[in-house]
Design a protein around this nucleic acid. Structure first.
Lengths: 135, 135
DNA sequence: ATGTATGCAAAACATTTGCACCTGG
DNA sequence: CCAGGTGCAAATGTTTTGCATACAT
């Protein structure tokens, strides 16, 4: 019942929002650009503008439904927030993204931040490399 | 003798390149956008176009003289490569950047990448937070 | 009804590129 | 001299915004 997520976020349940949420939820690739989503909408025969996709994603981000990442290469990618924090391994050749999470690293980050007098709001560890399939 | 760095990189020693390198070397803020550098050049009375700043920075990056970072917020920032790898703590309010380096984290990253079949080309750990002075 | 959301086109940015002119070795 | 570098303006690619219309409650 995904409409709940929208209502909970204080957003009206509209067709574009539901469609976009649906794409984020059902895609097996978890990291999509606004254009990726736009293209999928067109393919599905939906009449939704690219501007709306950006607007909706920005609202989703503000509502905590989605995370925006700035990986290398111009476009931002959006990922459905599934609750479990994790970091990313990105293949610089094919764009494949692997998620990982390591408590040792997490703890170290907290320690370093507090020593530097920073109150963490967010953090992003992204390792860029070449995946097995691209070698 | 910074002209050496340029020659070593196979780049002609031209006025724009020297000026830009000089700014990167002497600035006490280590992370500058192309516009930051452009503005400083204008203030110093140099007749250098923004396009040239971008071109030169891109060449410097290719030559390994400079690293380009994509922190949050549109513009890329450039940092003189001083040899010692490090990660960043960025204040989301004032933009201050603190550098750090932790061998435990580095080692974990290598381990995680190799387990996932990735050959690391680069990595970026950036912690976003609010620094002491902004609270 | 009515306030919010959308679509479209235009604007706003950051960055790159084409091209005629200039410069360093 | 001559390849390579630069300045300017125009092009590009991504994301945002203004505004008139359409929609959810």
């Amino acid at each position: 019942m995904e409409t709940q997520d929208l209502k909970k976020a204080g957003l009206k349940v509209t067709l574009p929002r539901m469609k976009i949420l649906e794409i984020l939820e059902t895609s097996n690739v978890h990291h999509l650009t606004a254009e990726d989503i736009y293209r999928q909408l067109l393919e599905a025969g939906e009449e939704i503008g690219l501007a709306t996709v950006y607007r909706v994603l920005t609202q989703f981000e503000a509502a905590g439904l989605v995370t925006r990442h700035h990986f290398e290469g111009g476009q931002a990618v959006f990922e459905l927030e599934r609750g479990a924090h994790h970091d990313h391994l990105v293949c610089v050749k094919c764009g494949k993204v692997v998620e990982f999470m390591d408590e040792t690293i997490e703890a170290k980050q907290r320690q370093i931040s507090s020593e530097a007098g920073f109150e963490i709001t967010d953090h992003a560890l992204t390792i860029y490399g070449i995946c097995r399939d691209c070698r």
